[in-house]
Structure formats: structure tokens, C-alpha cells
Design a binder for these strands. Sequence first.
DNA 1: GCACCTTTGAAGAAG
DNA 2: CTTCTTCAAAGGTGC
Length: 625
Amino acid sequence: MPQLNGGGGDDLGANDELISFKDEGEQEEKISENVSSERDLDEVKSSLVNESENNSSSSDSEQTDWRPRPRPELESYEKQREYFAEALRRQQDGGFFKGPPYAGYPFLMIPDITNPYLSNGSLSPSTRTYLQMKWPLLDVPGTAALKDSRSPTPGCFVSCFSLLCWSGVFSSYRPIYKSGLREIYQASPLMNCRTCLMLVGAEVKLTAYIESNKVPVVQHPHHVHPLTPLITYSNEHFSPGTPPSHLSPEILDPKTGIPRTPHPSELSPYYPLSPGAVGQIPHPLGWLVPQHGQHMYSIPPGGFRHPYPALAMNASMSSLVSSRFSPHMVPHPSHGLHQTGIPHPAIVSPAIKQEPNGDNASNSTHGSPSVPVKKEEERKPHIKKPLNAFMLYMKEMRAKVVAECTLKESAAINQILGRRWHSLSREEQAKYYELARKERQLHSQLYPGWSARDNYGKRKKRKRDNKPDSPQESNFLPQPKKQCVPYLPSEKMCDSPTSSHGSMLDSPATPSAALASPAAPAATHSEQAQPLSLTTKPEGRTHHPHFPLPGKASGSSSNSSSSSSSHPSISLHSQSAALLSRPIPFTTLPPSLLSPSSPFHQAALHSHHALMQTQPLSLVTKSAE
DNA sequence: GCACCTTTGAAGAAG
DNA sequence: CTTCTTCAAAGGTGC
């Protein structure tokens, strides 16, 4: 199951980035160790500094420009920017720097210079996005950028330092720049010259400016500090509750390419949050982010996999899976959080659920205390059950089925989905079982004390009023709880759009079809796919091959539990009941049993044939009763 | 507005 | 241990 384990592409840091890291580190070491290089560096520095100083006689005066003046900071910013731009232009050697003079932010203040970087030294995606957006000139290392000439070279440090000089930095800060540059290179060699330059320069400049002016915040003409967009992301000012769109994971507008705020549905498609709670989620995966920098869930060394969105691993979830952690996306204390402090999409506050539009609902905790009962309910958020494999599959495939079919009724769609589910190959099903298993694990980790029983009675009233008529009415005839009648019409309704292109939809998994399925031969697959569940399953038992049994679940013989549950009055053997109740039972049989030589296969085949013949009779409808 | 329908699977209770 | 019940998602339908 490459998608699940694979993680190759989901690494927190791209491999190429790591490679660059190593190379740059070595290069930098070489530079520091090479005396000649050092001498060259000094030469370059001196020449550039001189040039800088000569070139801009305002250097010294500019130094005084740092002092408060009516609007000195703006002018200073402009000058600094011009220096940066000019230096960059020269540095770019043409070609790369084609844009207009840089008009970005004079300062680039990153709260923690190591913060934007992941443990492996690579720049966090969000920071990447952020830098690219806020500082267009920054060549925030992308995968491609690392491979081109813009990547730091042995002379990069020199170039950076030169740039620093060019940028109008005062000589008094050169040591700081130099050391800072080295630090940055060591900490995050992925950054190229300009990135280092900006970071170091901005840091030093800002520090100097603040220190010299004793004015931590400069009022922008529009009452917005020029650094506001940057300060916003400082540790102090960053408000996790209202994450800037560009700090959100790399969800870019496909049209503009500008990072955008992810839609709630993108945040967590499987445990959708109520609208009121969306804003609390700092990251699509944010609720997974542990509080103290420790991953709540075991994140494979190669990367992170989101167990919930992971459902759509094969299709729609790739984007979500590709979303990566960002140091910015730290959990935050919020009233909507689970006791674990981790916002989980599975938590649905009753109030929110009932009043999706009422933002006051979520705020009622500090609102009028007139309803203590509701308050109490709010305190106990409704934790939904983890989705099982089929549910996961349904969520993913529903849209496709709906698109293919003219049907809109969910009941009919679900029938089709159920049929498709059975027609899935073992690998495909195993994938969902694995996801479901992980989801349960995750759920159990998130809510250790939660029990499925907790949700009992949450729903108004279970439809199943257990008809007063006794089972004897149906005599021996199985009385399926779920009527199969709509099943066939639904199929037919959906046949037209799908049969044209041979969709599985209209290819019921007849015994022959199922047996001929390429997935069938994978005799040991289910075992591999469900290691946990199958370890307790005796080989020869007549279970559903794909139905993993919960660790503690007995379930051994009631593999077709759902079937049996659907047929309370059926006293047949569970397997037989399954065969009788399920239109497509064979794909659910273990390969061993599917073997033509298997006695069970014969029996099952026989039963299925009987089912095929008697199915119309067995389709006990409600009306028939 | 709410329950129902419909699917499969998991979990828990009950026998 | 087996059987049964409930819930999870989803959205049209019917009352």
C-alpha cells in the first residue's frame, strides 16, 4: 500500500532540499576553512564596502536617518529598499531579477529564525509561501530553485556579505551580519543568498532601528505598522485563531497562485467542523498537532500522514496529505478544543451543530448563563464515531457516483456505493480498512475515554421501531431489514450514465465476476492489509475477509455482523445470512474460500445461485408488509 | 424541521 | 460466544 506507507512524497522536507542542505553546509565549511577564500572575502568585503560607502554618501547620513524624524522611517525604508534592490540587481547578474525594483517590506522579521524551518533544516512550507508572498524577491528555496544557480554556492556567503554591504548596511553591523549570515547558513543552508540577506539584514536593521529609536512600533500612515504583516506572525502576536491565509498550508488559489484560506471542507473533509469552529483550526492538520511540540500521532520519519484526510489518499486527499506541518500552526487554547487541547474535527459541539449560523452559540459560554443545561451540553461535545472503511469509501466516492448518475437520493447512492464497495479489489478495500483502522487508533488516542456508547441516544430516535409483527410472520423466509427493491431500480437508473463507459457501477460483482476479479488471487493480501485484525482470526473461519475484527472484538464468527444485524430474524448461519442478504457476497469471501476447490466456495456458489433465483422473493418491501 | 432511507463496519450491550 | 442495536455520512424525500 504505497499510498499509506509511502511517504516518500510526503516528507516534511524534500529530499532535494536536504541534499542542498548538506552541500551548502559543506561548502560553507570549506569557505570558513579556506584561508584564501577568507582573504578573498575580505577583499570583496572591503571593496564592496568602500564602494558602498562611496557610492552612497548618504550612508553615514542615513545612519542618522535611523533617528526619529517626522517621517524618517519611510524614507529610510525606501532608501534601504533601493539599496537592496540595486544590490540584488547587480547580484542577479541579469536574467533572474527581472521584476521592477523591489518594493517589498523593508524589514523581514521572523519571530524565531529557526522557527520557519523544520527539524531537518528545510524551510517550512508555510514559511515558504509566506516569504514568497510577502517578500517576492526572496528566493525562498523551492524544489526547483535549489537546483539552479541561485542556490548557495561556495561563493554565496561572500556574495551575501557583499550584498549586505551593498544594501547600505552600516559597517558597524557588518560583524553581526557576517555572524548572522553564518548562523543562518548553518541553521538553514537551504536559504540562498537573498534569503539570508533579507533575514539577517532585516533582523539587524530592525534591531538597530528599534534600539536607536526606542520606538518599537512605528505608526504607518494608515495606522498600520509597516511590519504589521510580519509581526502578525511573531510568536507574540500570532493569533492561531485567525491564521492568515498565506500562513495556512499551501493551499494556493489555482488561478492566482496566491495562498488562500482553505475552505472548511478542505480543512477536514471527514470530520467537518461547524462553521463556528472553523476559525479555530489553524491548519487542516492542526488538530493533529500536539501541544508541546510532540506529535500526538506517530508521524513517520519520512513525512506526515493525516489519518483522517488520508482517506482520500488515492484521489482527493493528496492535496491534504501534501499539506505539511508548519511550526506556526501550533495548537492554541480555545474554548472549542477537546480536553486534550487538540481541536478535532470529530468534535461537534451540540450547540454549534444545532445553530450553525449562530456564532453566539459558540460564544454562549461566556454569554448569558441563562441556560445551564445547554452549557452542560456544550461542555460535552459530541464526539462522533470514527468512520469505518466503508464510510471512508463512501465519502470519497459519493461525489463520483453522484456525478455519474442522475440519482440524487442518498439512499440510492448508498446502494450503489455499497455495490461498488464489494466490487472493489482487495487492495482497494484494504486501503480503506487500513485507513479506518488508523482512524480508530487516532480517535482512541484523541479520546481515550470515549465510547461509542456515549453517542447512543444522541440521535433523536432510531427509526428501527422493530415492527410489532413477530418474526414468525415471515416464517422461514429471511426478512431483511434493508429492502433490496430499490437496489435494482437504482442500478438501472444509474446504468445509463455509467454503462456507456463500462463503469463498475453496472458490472455487478457476480460470483463469476468476483472470482474473476484480479483482486481475488491475492490470497494473503487481506492478512497483510489487516494485520491487527486478522491476527486473531482463525484462518478457516468463515469471516468476511476484509472485515477486520477489532482487537477486542470477538467477532470471529460474526464476521458478517452487519448482515446479521440487518436480519434480526434470520437464524441462519451467519455466513448464509450474509449470502442471502448481500447482493454481492463473493468479493467478501476469503481467497481460500473463493477457491473453486474450496468446499465453501461450492456451497457459497450454490447459495448465491439460489439467492439469485430467490432474490425477487426475498425482497421484502415495506409495502409488502 | 426532523426522521427516514440506504449502505457497511465498528462497538457495545444483551442473551 | 453469538446476536442484536446503534451510530457513523449524506442528501433527497415525506410528513
